[in-house]
Design a protein around this nucleic acid. Structure first.
Lengths: 97, 97
DNA sequence: CCTATATTTGTCAATATTTGACAAGTCAAA
DNA sequence: TTTGACTTGTCAAATATTGACAAATATAGG
């Protein structure tokens, strides 16, 4: 499966005993939307990560990583050359730094 | 920059002394479109990779890799957690095999 | 069982994005 | 200065995404 981000924010929300309603309000969306985000049915907007990190008292970078990883995984899954491509991108990033 | 795929198919096309017109016809698109694809302005459809590989006598897997790498790079560029996310996806792929 | 509240799922119009097609432009060689 | 190759710009049509709401389901307390 492939919803690390959603699973994580759901776990954090429950850990803090918050209702969808409360978190959703903080993000200015309705509970239905947030529910779908937790389930991985819909994506959260990148710009909203800091807000959700704030209310869940989570590390922004952790959530950014999970969020990106989900996107990348969706893109490479089932691709025969996934490994090669990932390696190539990693290498290219290193060079640029 | 970020157009390995386009650069490669352009180089191959020139190596074989083919006109845009000829390659485009084989892909059932017009030359303007293919020109943009070579320049990286527009993406080639994934399903078309085998066709372009055929006419350019290229290795399908090579082109698939470049194509995917371009997509991935576009997705991670400028992201602070790009490295972490790439590593995590690579790891996840390994586990699944 | 009934009721209340939380969550999930379905739907759909509005909005945004991508695509395909064509016109018009530049450029280089003859 | 004409011709052919390539590039760029534009725009309507096709697709995809989003936001909002209604309805269904799940869960807990009386």
């Amino acid at each position: 499966m492939n919803n690390q981000f959603g699973d994580r924010i759901k776990a954090l929300r429950e850990k803090h005993s918050l209702y969808l309603r409360q978190v959703a309000a903080h993000l200015q969306m309705d509970t239905a939307q947030l529910s779908k985000i937790e389930k991985g049915v819909r994506p959260l907007k990148k710009e909203q990560i800091p807000f959700i990190a704030e209310i869940l008292k989570a590390d922004i970078e952790e959530l950014q990583t999970l969020w990106l990883a989900d996107q990348l995984y969706t893109m490479v899954q089932g691709e025969p050359m996934a490994d090669e491509a990932l390696k190539s991108v990693t290498k290219k990033l290193k060079k640029e730094k």
